[in-house]
Amino acid sequence: MAWITKDSANARIDRRDEPYLSDAFKKSFDEKYAHRYPNRQALSLPILHAIQHEHNYLPYQALEEAAEFLGIGVSDLLDTATFYEEYFLEPKGKYTVWVCQSVSCEIMGEGDVTRAISDKLGIEPGETTADGKFTLMKVECIGACGGAPCALINEELAEDLTPENVLKRLDVLD
């Protein structure tokens, strides 16, 4: 779990003039979700998912706007955002490869699969390729143990991986 301490005194926050959360976005978001929960803080996870879906990560300015929109403190939203592994506060690759490293996958050869990807892309787990195309993550059980070793490539499940077939799967992505 994340214990991120931000060096807030010196950190430069990238800002842009155009808001990340447009009025149209806010309207449709509220229509879809607001009635579901008795308070607005409970909209935190849905809104973080929505922002990340749109921008592929969570820009700090977008978090500020979202917190204001929900009527909660920015620190509260940041607290939530940093706790969960799926949320990225830095840009990540166009494709994120989430390799499962839990027991069934390790037994079935996850180590060789990860090494093959790592060698091919020239990055270690947790890193993103210089061209911004791939991010490699090692994660815990993704609930597809029958097809171990397995990985998620963005939202697509890839099962029964070998060092060879996983590279083929990455090759066809553009």
Partner: peptide, 11 residues
């Protein structure tokens, strides 16, 4: 939530 390692029944 089904996140226990090696567990994939509920899905």
């Amino acid at each position: 939530d089904e996140s226990e390692p090696a567990t994939f029944k509920d899905q």
